[in-house]
Design a protein around this nucleic acid. Structure first.
Lengths: 167, 167
DNA sequence: TTGTGTGCAAAAGCTTTGCATGTTG
DNA sequence: CAACATGCAAAGCTTTTGCACACAA
């Protein structure tokens, strides 16, 4: 994504967020927009704490409470997606202007790849109808091992490994 | 599943677990087998704490530490599956003798339904090949609203006000 | 007997909450 | 000016860890 395009996107998402806040009688505070902007200048998956630290390093001090509060607002208006990649730690990513996608996670190095497959949509539609659900969203994660040279792929077959042997 | 069949299954999974423990030079303690049995007498998804309480109520006192330790062992030998249904709370379910399946979760009442779809396997195979991954397992959750009469389908969630106001 | 597993409780890690203060509308 | 949002720190929850004792092998 080009730099120019990024600025445009940031402008757009700010407008979308502003409308969302208005519609819900929430205040348009500078903190909320600063957090949104920070998120849209990043390109990775991140957790709340790293966003908090990141803001600090960029000389914008907000509290953790505000970070969590704002993340929830952003998730509610679909500007940010929230994931759990198998850990007890929420991961977030910006979502406006990006194609819906799912994730492939390397169990060894934690690398996260993205992919799209139209069959997911078919499954959602079919199962929603079959089971009497209105499916609003989904989460599909594939877990496995990547084959990159840098990946600490040592663990041969974890199926029967003593898991307490730290690492 | 018939009662007779359940007893057979419990016998089988204990044998499988015993072999797994031997293979990994772990001790065959009564606590470990008691936890396994307790899990296989349940029919639902459960979290570690509720299993711990459940054991207590059945007059078998184990510590939380042992519950977590044993759950991990059971997950490692594929007798138990671990899930995260969008919350910061691991949910578990027995898996031996059951068909692989995915989940549909009601955002309003928390009900969890199960479904199978062969297309998931196709996606795993395809994406693994395409992205150079050896995919070992996956997690697919569909989220939405069920249409049961008992479902509290209009609970506006608290928090930062504003979420499912429209869409 | 040896060393792993257990129980207990404290600690750790992520997230939420309470309260006083500041700011938006 | 009245609410609502923020910052801070404390509390909440789930999970992990440390340590002394118990017990499987």
């Amino acid at each position: 994504m080009s730099a120019r395009n990024q600025e445009e996107i940031i402008k757009e998402v700010k407008e979308i967020f502003a409308r969302h806040l208005e519609r819900n009688n929430c205040r348009k505070t500078p903190e909320r927009f600063a957090i949104l902007e920070e998120i849209y200048r990043r390109d990775d998956h991140f957790d709340a704490e790293s966003l908090y630290i990141h803001m600090k390093n960029h000389n914008y001090r907000v509290s953790r409470a505000t970070v969590y509060n704002t993340l929830e607002l952003l998730v509610n208006c679909d500007l940010v997606k929230k994931h759990q990649f198998g850990k007890n730690l929420a991961q977030y990513e910006k979502s406006y202007g990006f194609k819906q996608h799912d994730h492939l996670i390397c169990l060894d190095c934690g690398e996260v790849l993205e992919f799209c497959d139209p069959r997911i949509q078919q499954i959602k539609d079919m199962m929603g109808g079959l089971l009497g659900f209105e499916v609003t969203h989904h989460s599909l994660n594939l877990y496995g091992r990547c084959r990159r040279a840098e990946c600490p792929n040592r663990t041969p077959e974890p199926a029967a490994s003593s898991e307490m042997n730290d690492e």
